[in-house]
Simulated scan of single mutants.
Amino acid sequence: MSVATKSARETVEVISKSGRDRDRNLTSMLFLIGLWFSLFFGVMVLVVLIVDTAISGASRFDGDLITGYGSRVSPETTGFRAGILGSVWLMAFTALFAVPLGIAAAIYFEEFSDQTKWYNRVLEVNLQNLAAVPSIVYGLLAVAVMALMGFQQTGVVLGGAIALALLILPVIIITTREALRAVPAEIRQGSLALGATMWQTTWRQTLPSAIPGISTGTILGLSRAIGEAAPLVVVGIAGSVRFDPTGLASQITALPIQIYTLTSESREAYQTAASAAIIVLLVMILSLNGLAIYIRNKFQRSW
């Protein structure tokens, strides 16, 4: 073994040992304990809240909860059929409005935009800011869009879908851009070197390679939207609707709105029904999150 090699090995060992010593000092240990305690405390509070809510609504886990409509006469049998179907309709049209537009905007920003142009830089800054805008603002924007389109009726499927689409649009754009950015540049360069155009490269190489990340981000965005109530209140969606939606211009309610309405009631039967509906909403959100995790683990590629 040469002198240089031996010296280098001794240096690495000294650095490694000093690093371990630093990791084991009192400050680092206290910081690590604080992190674990914060995680444990947060998870335990969440678990306690969910268990308490489930216990409160346990007596209403029956068929009427899913298949029945809201009732002012018999609170013991009030159901959430209209809210569940309304949420499904809202999610379907929210995805229809937001996903194609969000993916197209992300492709433009990541693959075709010229970052030296001032208007592209302005759009970039505004896109980052939109992700932090309070959700109620998107409800106001949806009201303005509905007014421009000439709709006088409030509380319809179209208004709620526009509000939620505006809400998750920045999330879809950002996650899609990250998915596109994760595709190695060598794939693009190889396609272009073989004579493909930039659009052909994006459509046939980059976009298919980024589909797992795009799908995960889109589903997570929808799982956020399904639990939102503030923008839906602004567009006039009420909790008193007792029929199934039939189209874009149909009056509608949503599960978060019904929960919000019943929690303000004084009768205990409505409070119990609201607790049961919260668990139903949590199951729907966790199902979407689980689907996103499955897609990520199933189709994720290692480059």
Rank of each mutant, 00 (worst) to 15 (best):
E124K: 13
E124T: 10
N126E: 06
L127D: 05
N129Q: 13
L130C: 09
A131G: 07
A131L: 07
P134D: 09
P134T: 09
S135A: 14
S135P: 01
I136V: 15
G139W: 12
A142R: 03
A142L: 09
A144G: 12
V145C: 08
M146H: 09
M146Y: 09
M146E: 07
M146D: 08
A147P: 00
A147N: 13
A147Q: 14
M149P: 00
G150E: 05
Q153F: 02
Q153P: 07
T154H: 07
G155F: 13
V156C: 00
V157G: 01
G159S: 14
G160Q: 06
A161S: 15
I162H: 00
L166C: 08
I168C: 00
L169P: 05
P170A: 05
P170Y: 06
P170N: 06
I172N: 09
I173R: 12
I173Q: 13
I173L: 12
T175G: 06
T176I: 04
R177T: 00
E178Y: 10
E178Q: 15
A179W: 03
A179T: 05
L180K: 01
R181D: 07
V183S: 07
V183T: 07
P184W: 07
A185F: 13
A185E: 15
A185K: 15
A185I: 14
E186L: 02
E186I: 07
I187Y: 15
I187S: 03
I187T: 09
G190I: 05
S191Y: 13
S191H: 10
L194P: 01
G195A: 11
G195F: 13
G195M: 10
T197P: 10
T197I: 06
W199A: 02
W199D: 04
Q200M: 08
T201M: 14
T201C: 12
T202G: 02
T202C: 06
T202R: 12
T202S: 12
W203T: 03
W203C: 00
R204S: 14
Q205C: 03
Q205P: 00
Q205F: 13
T206R: 08
L207A: 05
S209Q: 14
S209G: 02
A210S: 08
I211K: 11
G213E: 01
T218P: 00
I219F: 05
G221K: 03
S223K: 09
S223N: 10
R224W: 07
R224T: 02
A225D: 10
A225S: 10
I226H: 02
G227F: 08
E228A: 04
E228G: 01
A229L: 02
A230G: 08
A230W: 13
A230R: 10
P231Q: 11
V233M: 15
